[in-house]
Design a binder for these strands. Structure first.
Length: 430
RNA sequence: GGGGAGAUGCCAGAGCGGCCAAUUGGGGCGGACUGUAAAUCCGUUGCGUAAGCUUCGAAGGUUCGAAUCCUUCUCUCCCCA
């Protein structure tokens, strides 16, 4: 039994903790859980922190439970929300639950040892729980004053909160109690925004079972600019589903972490020993321009979330696209298979050979002929080209009106680069 | 119910009859520098190769000419009951 808490402390993963948690966990194998909200069909990078809590938990010899909030998702957690949620349609919710459950299965060991992980859905115990029963059995134990004191509720009193969302914490609290009763769960973990919900559960268990339960929250990750971690600059989530966010994008996102945040991230997202991580950080600080930590982080996380093969692909792709030494010649030297591999994760735009042959200028090619996916208008295309922002097959385009009679890669492909980081592959079809 | 203020480009916010495709800031995009960083700097930011075209809540009107004036409508905010 490794010292789970000490390790979490060092990794910077503890924001708050119920007193006595450490002592309790040191007594032997404990069972703990984390809940996941099925409000989207995929988990995102932000969810990876609580997933890591469970992984570290299991790694330390404890038994993890991943709980999908099929029931709580029907209500909506007011935590961190300034406005009432809009309900999801039930079939959407069920679909989301299933795909999230599938994702969770990747991260934990569900098959071996006494501490193998379990996956549960709280819809299973809420679906037959009547309202009257709930009020008599659960509601009676928690005073309204206690519920009102929670941040998630307090912040919403002025602007408005429905009874439904107000009651949310009781549902999550009941989950904890239910798991305590039936699965011997004594610990709930989550992001720091979950603190109020976790303590309601602890309280409920104390009142109803006269026993102690414990809770740990991890700090919510923020980027250096204070915004939530795990979102692109455009504000979209980095999803764990490769169909929504490609391994290459995930790799690139992590590779671009700032020097300061990367030190925090590597501790959270690795299982590497303390001494090794600290040595790595020192090496990094000596030569930050090598971006050793960023590369290590990107590699580890991409491998964990997707696979070693997907990660390798992302690296190869990154090298070809970004390397200063990768020239036009290198690009033309690639086999067709390699071209497709390198471009596996960048947007592809199809155009017929006939259409291509009739296009009068590179401007048209990049805007109207490609459905304005690369450029929103001809004007924009002209502006960007004029300011030197377009490369085709790695060659800088200077004349906006030149005919797009480039030598196609393998007689089929054009690699268009807009700015430094945006790539598109134009595929010629017959 | 009574009184007042307002609706301008992605956002904030000027403009109040021609010099307005619309000041400025933020954001976005592109470039330079660099470590595919941060900071900084430069350019650009309705459509159109151009002539020109369509924009300032909506619809009408006045005028040689309107984002700017008038009428009606829609919506938002504030104050008093």
């Amino acid at each position: 039994m490794k010292n789970f808490i000490a390790s979490l402390y060092w990794r910077g993963m503890i924001h708050d903790m119920v007193p006595g948690t450490a002592a309790h966990l040191n007594k032997g194998m404990a069972t703990g859980y984390v809940g996941f909200d099925p409000s989207a069909p995929s988990l995102h990078l932000g969810n990876l922190v609580p997933i890591m809590l469970l992984k570290h938990f299991q790694e330390a010899g404890h038994k993890p439970i991943a709980l999908v909030g099929g029931a709580t998702g029907m209500i909506g957690d007011p935590s961190g929300r300034s406005q009432e949620r809009v309900f999801l349609k039930e079939e959407v919710l069920r679909y989301n639950e299933a795909s999230i459950a599938k994702q969770l299965e990747k991260f934990l060991d569900f098959s071996t040892g006494p501490n193998k992980a379990i996956l549960l859905n709280n819809f299973d115990w809420f679906k037959d729980f009547s309202f009257l029963e709930f009020l008599r059995d659960i509601g009676k134990h928690i005073p309204v004053g206690y519920m009102m004191a929670k941040d998630s509720v307090k912040k919403r009193i002025e602007t408005g909160i429905s009874y439904t969302e107000f009651a949310y914490q009781l549902l999550q609290g009941y989950d904890f109690y239910h798991l305590h009763l039936h699965k011997n769960v004594t610990l709930q973990m989550g992001g720091s925004d979950q603190w109020g919900n976790l303590t309601t559960g602890v309280e409920l268990i104390r009142k109803k079972s006269q026993s102690h339960a414990f809770a740990i929250t991890a700090p919510l990750l923020t980027r250096s600019d204070g915004t939530k971690f795990g979102k692109t600059d455009a504000g979209t989530n980095i999803w764990l589903d490769p169909a929504q966010t490609s391994p290459y994008e995930l790799y690139q996102f992590l590779l671009n972490s700032g020097d300061h945040e990367v030190e925090k991230l590597i501790k959270i997202f690795s299982f590497t020993k303390k001494e090794e991580v600290e040595a790595l950080i020192l090496t990094h600080q000596a030569k930050p321009e090598k971006r050793l930590l960023q590369q290590t982080l990107a590699k580890m996380v991409t491998t964990m979330v997707h696979s070693e093969a997907a990660c390798r692909q992302a690296i190869i792709c990154s090298n070809i696209l970004f390397s200063h030494t990768a020239s036009t010649d290198a690009l033309y030297a690639l086999s067709e298979e390699d071209v497709l591999r390198v471009c596996a994760t960048i947007p592809k735009i199809h155009i017929t050979r006939i259409a291509l042959s009739t296009i009068d200028s590179i401007i048209s090619l990049l805007s109207v002929a490609t459905e304005n996916l690369i450029m929103a208008s001809k004007s924009e295309a002209r502006r960007v080209i004029t300011s030197g922002g377009i490369k085709v097959n790695k060659v800088l385009i200077t004349d906006p009106y030149q005919k797009p009679d480039f030598i196609l890669l393998h007689n089929r492909y054009l690699l268009v680069q807009k700015g430094k980081k945006n790539y598109y592959l134009i595929v010629v079809v017959e």
